[in-house]
């Protein structure tokens, strides 16, 4: 059976001067539709590289990445841009909001690139901002909001084009524990209710506990895979 996302022998090697750093060493994995996958590992384990490669932000040195029927590794930059616009939403550790735009504009930015008219897209954005609990902060600029609020804006932005997959790179890395659980509840709840696939990178086992599949990475290798609390060999 074809999986929603399939990685075969993915290798990523960085060259630092003469030294070769193997960030990913022949990774094979698959993700099914609607799954919540957490890539868990310490700093330098290759978890972020794996996410970037899956999202098409980085090219693998070797191997294939198939999302639906598309081969991510052989797409051109323009094809990737179009693919991301349609299929992928991103949430980052440092939020990555546009500092000059207010919450409403930040959330509707992906729709601007798809050419949606202003009224329609701002209506959608306002609806999503209400859903993440920022209905009263529509016109606030990022620097006028707390970290948790900014991350909610970025979550709303990730969901605005109704993507099939949400990639989240340490979404709670800059947040305190109370906000962490709020943000995690929000992001998992939204993804689940929409049937979206969520792939999340973290070093925090508490965050990993939200996922139904946890892949433990160490030095570029998959150390173990835990599905619904049970180790899978």
């Amino acid at each position: 059976m074809d999986h929603f996302i399939e990685l075969n022998d993915v290798k990523k090697i960085y060259r630092m001067g003469r030294e070769k750093i193997i960030a990913l060493n022949n990774i094979n994995l698959h993700v099914d539709r609607g799954q919540f996958l957490c890539l868990l590992g310490t700093s330098g384990s290759g978890k972020s590289t794996l996410l970037n490669v899956m999202a098409g932000l980085e090219k693998p040195t070797r191997g294939t990445i198939k999302v639906r029927q598309f081969h991510i590794e052989s797409m051109s930059e323009d094809q990737l841009a179009r693919f991301r616009k349609k299929n992928i939403g991103f949430v980052f550790q440092s939020y990555n909001l546009m500092p000059t735009l207010n919450a409403l504009e930040n959330v509707s930015l992906p729709l601007i690139f798809s050419g949606m008219p202003v009224k329609k897209r701002e209506k959608l954005a306002a609806k999503l901002l209400k859903a993440v609990g920022l209905g009263d902060r529509l016109r606030h600029k990022p620097q006028e909001m707390s970290g948790g609020q900014q991350q909610r804006v970025s979550i709303a932005r990730a969901f605005i084009n109704d993507p099939r997959i949400i990639f989240a790179d340490e979404p709670t890395g800059n947040l305190d524990s109370r906000t962490t659980s709020e943000v995690m509840d929000l992001i998992t709840g939204m993804a689940r209710s929409r049937g979206q696939t969520l792939i999340l990178v973290s070093h925090d086992p508490e965050v990993a506990a939200y996922a139904n599949t946890v892949i433990h990475l160490k030095d570029g290798n998959v150390e173990n895979t835990i599905i619904n609390g049970e180790e899978n060999q």
């Binding site: 616009k85 991103f90 990555n96 690139f113």
Partner: peptide, 16 residues
């Protein structure tokens, strides 16, 4: 630079 990166990641084409 950072903004350009954000725009690219969230779906701005090279043409945009």
């Amino acid at each position: 630079t950072r903004e350009i990166g954000i725009m690219k990641v969230i779906g701005a084409s090279l043409r945009d």
